[in-house]
């Protein structure tokens, strides 16, 4: 092998290493476990992507995702677990509603979920205002609850701010129209 072709071989091998680094970035970024949460509030579906929980301010302050909900509205949740790995993912999922550090209601009680390799699993549940065991908030009052979704060691928090839905008075008989008295 000539000296030039030998030096070129080193260059090609170095380029192969560089291509390998790029391939690791792509493949490693794709592989893993991803969870997406879909919450429908006021007929609008909110999608909470896995990236949301990776943001520094969410991680550091351990903040949840905030949503405003009208009292009386039922909130459907859809939790999708995407297993992009070569082994089956087995985990316990627990969903509960908390207020002031106290558990109010358990929506999903330690449900064992199994996700096959490179497959997705969807878990869904619905939260009704009646489940919270409180009466409707009065005008101007806001009530906040935390929905905790625990998947193994990982916890996701959704903060629900309930506001009262203004009610309209029922239609009754028409009010009598005062007739001015006429002097005769």
């Amino acid at each position: 092998m000539s000296a030039k072709s030998k030096s070129n071989l080193y260059l090609y091998l170095a380029l192969v290493c560089f291509a390998g680094i790029l391939a690791i970035f792509v493949v490693d970024g794709y592989l893993g476990l991803y969870d997406t949460l879909y919450v429908t509030v006021q007929e609008r579906e909110q999608v909470i992507e896995p990236d949301y929980w990776q943001q520094r301010w969410v991680k550091e302050s351990y903040e949840g995702y905030s949503l405003g909900v009208g009292w009386g509205e039922s909130i459907p949740f859809r939790y999708e677990i995407d297993n992009r790995s070569f082994s089956t993912y087995l985990v316990d999922v627990e969903v509960s509603v908390w207020k002031g550090g106290q558990k109010i209601v358990e929506l999903l009680d330690r449900t064992e979920v199994s996700v096959a390799p490179f497959k997705k699993t969807i878990i869904d549940w619905t939260l009704q205002s009646e489940d919270l065991g409180e009466s409707s908030p009065v005008s101007g009052e806001y009530r906040e609850y935390t929905v905790r979704i625990k998947r193994g060691e990982i916890e996701r928090k959704i903060i629900l701010s309930y506001y009262p839905v203004p009610g309209y008075p029922e239609k009754g008989p028409p009010l009598p129209i005062p007739v001015p008295e006429t002097s005769r």
Binding site: L11, L13, A14
Partner: peptide
């Protein structure tokens, strides 16, 4: 891979 890449560039 980074170590190998720098070593190979050095050799080149």
């Amino acid at each position: 891979l980074t170590t190998a890449m720098f070593a190979l560039f050095g050799k080149y």
